[in-house]
Computed example of a mutant assay.
Amino acid sequence: MHVESIPMWEGSGNNYAYLVTDEKSKDAVIIDPANPSEVLPSLKKAVDSGIKITNIINTHHHHDHAGGNSKILEAYRVPIIGGKDCDKVTKTPEHGSTFTIGDNIKVKALHTPCHTQDSICFLFEDGNDKAVFTGDTLFIGGCGRFFEGTPEEMDKALNQTLAGLPDDTKVYPGHEYTKGNVKFAVTVAQSEPIKKLEAFAGSNKQTQGKFTIGDEKQHNVFMRLDDPTVQKYTGKTDRVDVMAALREAKNSM
């Protein structure tokens, strides 16, 4: 499995599209190709090298994730797999259902409603290599806003659905937000994992694929709702109340 990150709207949205290729068959999917002018050159280069684009995958319907579908379809007439509200979606997979890319990559759809109700994270597995594409649900050191959902839903999405994945699963979020996330995290707790993330974010422009689910459980305050230090910061002990207070505090930064 080869993952190519394609930055979009650098300096504003700081989005990522991802081209994921099965190296044996050369079949590939493009995830959240929201800004075609930045994505299409990468796709053309890939296709010219022998790669076949088989699907568009969307993590949710927001324009900065699914808004490029129509334009991409003009160049590549492929099915779209994504949330039910995504533009021109062909198929919305059931929670826990699987499909394959090429010969080796198994993909599992994980419904994670909160940021949007149609949010889906996608777990890719190729042998021992595991990656999860989390859209705007899980960021490195943070999580998305609760635009269409509740603190309960985000707690379930992060701390049951995603936390239940193998610890060595690499995390590929929809945005490069790590510097801002860790700036908030250090106001909540001064743990060694958070300090380590702060140092990495300070010296690296991109952080996608550099951290795992296991890392997030250590340095992501939204995945540490039972941590006494995090609870003390929020003044709450019930985990849903802690989640709500953390998000409210982050929103007001």
Score class of each variant (00 low, 15 high):
I30D: 06
F146I: 10
S191D: 04
P41W: 15
G68K: 03
A163W: 01
Q231P: 02
M154N: 11
Q231S: 04
G135V: 01
S119I: 03
K45F: 13
K170P: 07
F133A: 06
G127I: 10
N69W: 03
P41I: 15
Q208W: 03
G13T: 05
M223R: 02
T116G: 03
L110N: 01
Y177M: 12
E38I: 09
A244F: 14
S97L: 07
A201G: 15
A131Q: 03
H219K: 09
I56L: 14
C86S: 15
Y18T: 03
I105E: 02
S203D: 14
V171P: 08
D118T: 04
D22Q: 02
V107D: 08
S37Q: 15
A131N: 05
P151N: 11
S252W: 13
T150S: 13
I101N: 06
T234P: 06
G13D: 11
G180Y: 14
N55W: 13
P113C: 04
P166T: 12
T212D: 00
G50F: 02
G141S: 02
D118N: 08
E216M: 04
L40S: 13
V29L: 08
N55D: 11
I57R: 07
V107R: 00
D126C: 11
H2M: 03
F146Q: 13
D167W: 00
K130E: 06
Q208P: 10
G142C: 12
T92W: 02
V29T: 06
H95A: 09
S42C: 11
I56E: 14
E10Y: 10
D167Q: 09
K205S: 14
P7M: 12
F124G: 03
H62N: 08
Q231T: 10
D167A: 05
F146H: 07
K232Y: 09
K195S: 05
I57C: 11
I80T: 15
N159H: 03
G144W: 07
G174K: 04
L110R: 04
M8F: 07
T207L: 07
D48K: 10
S119G: 07
A201R: 12
D32L: 01
A189P: 11
V230Q: 03
E74R: 04
G82K: 04
A157V: 10
E152F: 12
P151E: 13
G180F: 13
K91S: 08
T21N: 08
V186P: 01
E23C: 09
L110G: 01
G235F: 11
H219A: 02
A75W: 07
I194K: 05
K108H: 06
K84M: 12
M223T: 00
K183C: 14
F99P: 00
D129K: 05
I140V: 13
F139V: 00
A66N: 10
E148D: 07
F146K: 12
Q231D: 05
G235N: 12
T59P: 02
E125F: 05
E216W: 00
L19D: 10
T169W: 04
D215G: 00
C114G: 02
A189S: 15
E176C: 08
V107Q: 08
G149D: 01
V230Y: 00
P79Y: 15
Q190M: 10
G68L: 07
T21A: 06
D22R: 01
K156P: 02
T137C: 06
G11E: 14
K183E: 15
T212H: 02
T137Y: 00
N104A: 06
